[in-house]
Design a protein around this nucleic acid. Structure first.
Lengths: 132, 132
DNA sequence: TCGTCTATTAGACGCTATCTAACTCTAGAG
DNA sequence: CTCTAGAGTTAGATAGCGTCTAATAGACGA
């Protein structure tokens, strides 16, 4: 889908900078950090400022175009997959891989006493044995 | 168990500072950040330095007295429970609560193709409906 | 006691993210 | 079309967290 349309559908005014950020971050599977997004966007639009990229990413998260995922201290990474899925983190490379929701069975989360669980995911650590 | 003994059993030379850090962090269920540990320890030992607290926490993690979790932005959180368990994060207060391993069923993680999963946990977000 | 290795310290540093104040742009009213 | 208010962007300052450095202090065996 067109990025401009996608922004409008989520109630976001599509400025040039927002489209530039969106074109990069909404089509990657790399789980980039905010600064990686900043560097990537600046390659095409050298006048874009750090503040705008951070503002835009936070806006996208607020408007549910992106999800933020906390990987390491001081490092939030962004994920354009807004449907539920799990994450696997390679302990050697730090690489983050999406794991399909159905690949793992999780039961009884909803029945937890004393908690109203709105969302959850399984976070796995280990080593990748082969590419997909 | 005595903190001094616990340190020795994990191959850690028990200095005064390490015992002070250990007495606080090994007996709390609060999931404190490194800086919270620093503030708490400094209340009792005002001469202790930030670097020592950070060094000590990293040493404890390395020696498996603690586990470090990155669950909230910009915050490593330390957890003296070294047995497997899950985590629930209250989206209003940021409070982190341990969830017993058996409270949730997770199946098929070991069978994931292409991944050697060494450890995993379920991270839940939502609202707490009552105290335990 | 001496010497060496370990531990601690204050402060500097680096990185990430947010804030500030000035500016530029845009959309809508008239 | 012009004007204006609000939205968006900007560079740079600032804040928070964690690590590093160089010097000092302490512990332990010979």
């Amino acid at each position: 889908m067109d990025v401009v349309t996608e922004l409008r559908e989520h109630g976001i005014q599509p400025s040039a900078q927002r489209v530039a950020v969106g074109e990069y971050v909404l089509s990657t599977t790399d789980h980039p950090s905010a600064d990686q997004v900043f560097q990537a966007v600046r390659r095409r639009f050298p006048m874009v400022s750090r503040a705008t990229v951070y503002n835009t990413l936070n806006l996208f998260v607020e408007k549910k175009l992106l999800r933020a995922f906390v990987l390491a201290p001081g490092r939030i990474v962004f994920d354009p997959k807004t449907d539920s899925h799990h994450h696997f983190i390679d302990e050697r490379t730090g690489e983050i891989v999406d794991v399909p929701w159905d690949a793992v069975d999780v039961k009884r989360v909803e029945a937890l006493r004393g908690f109203d669980v709105r969302e959850y995911q399984v976070v796995m650590h280990g080593r990748r044995t082969r590419r997909h």
